[in-house]
Write a protein that binds this DNA or RNA. Structure first.
Length: 202
DNA sequence: AACATGATAAACT
DNA sequence: GTTTATCATGTTC
């Protein structure tokens, strides 16, 4: 169990793109209210501050919300979007650099019944954990977990390497970042090819 | 006022 | 079966 947990060094690379790619196939686990839920990461997005206009920390903008990203990697950055959705990010980099990887979609693994209850759904459908807001809700992730270390034994949230092999990775432009101008063209959205659990598009 | 979205409904093939 | 449009929603700045 503990040996499967990703080591702190994993998160300290300055190369967020490669890191985002490596996160595919890893397993995100949470124990909220004593209930274990987990899923394979099938879609991520890299955010590389300060030069990335799509990042909250563009130009090293330092606020109460973004300051969490300026810490060294290996912690969770969770923020509220559109007032409803909790989005889960992994903070990466050695510190100083406000890099982060957004987890956009999961393939359910453990605690599926718990996830169904949280989503108020009857049966498993791709949309259970497809989409950053959905997966957070399914795993019980809220802003209460913001800043939580992903490497501590006591953490309620962590990542595991269960030896899952990723066959092929697709790179595509990120969505919802039109305002980021030239940065919107950077192909920093990464997903596993031919996976039913990624949000739309194949 | 802006926002890294999701659920729903209505329109398509 | 799929894609497209609309809007609800609350925190940040």
């Amino acid at each position: 169990m503990t040996s499967l947990k990703l080591p702190l060094e994993f998160y300290l690379s300055e190369d967020v793109i490669t890191l985002a790619e490596k996160l595919l196939g890893k397993v995100l686990c949470t124990t909220i209210n004593g209930k274990l839920t987990s899923g394979i990461i099938v879609e991520t997005e890299a955010y590389k501050a300060p030069e990335d206009k799509a990042s909250h920390a563009y130009q090293n903008k330092f606020t109460d919300r973004t300051k969490i990203m300026f810490r060294p990697g290996g912690i969770a950055y969770i923020y509220l979007c559109y007032g409803i959705h909790h989005l889960f990010n992994v903070v990466t980099g050695p510190g100083e650099k406000a890099h982060a990887v957004l987890v956009r979609a999961l393939e359910p693994l453990d605690g599926i019944q718990v996830m169904l209850n949280r989503r108020k759904m009857q049966k498993v459908q791709p949309r259970l954990t497809a989409g950053p807001g959905s997966l957070s809700k399914a795993l019980g992730i809220t802003t209460a977990l913001c800043g939580e270390p992903l490497t501590e034994k006591s953490s309620k949230i962590w990542l595991e390497d269960r030896g899952i092999i990723v066959q092929r990775v697709i790179r595509s432009p990120r969505v919802g970042v039109d305002y980021a101008e030239e940065c919107a063209a950077w192909n920093w959205r990464l997903r596993i090819k031919d996976n039913d659990w990624t949000s739309k598009a194949k």
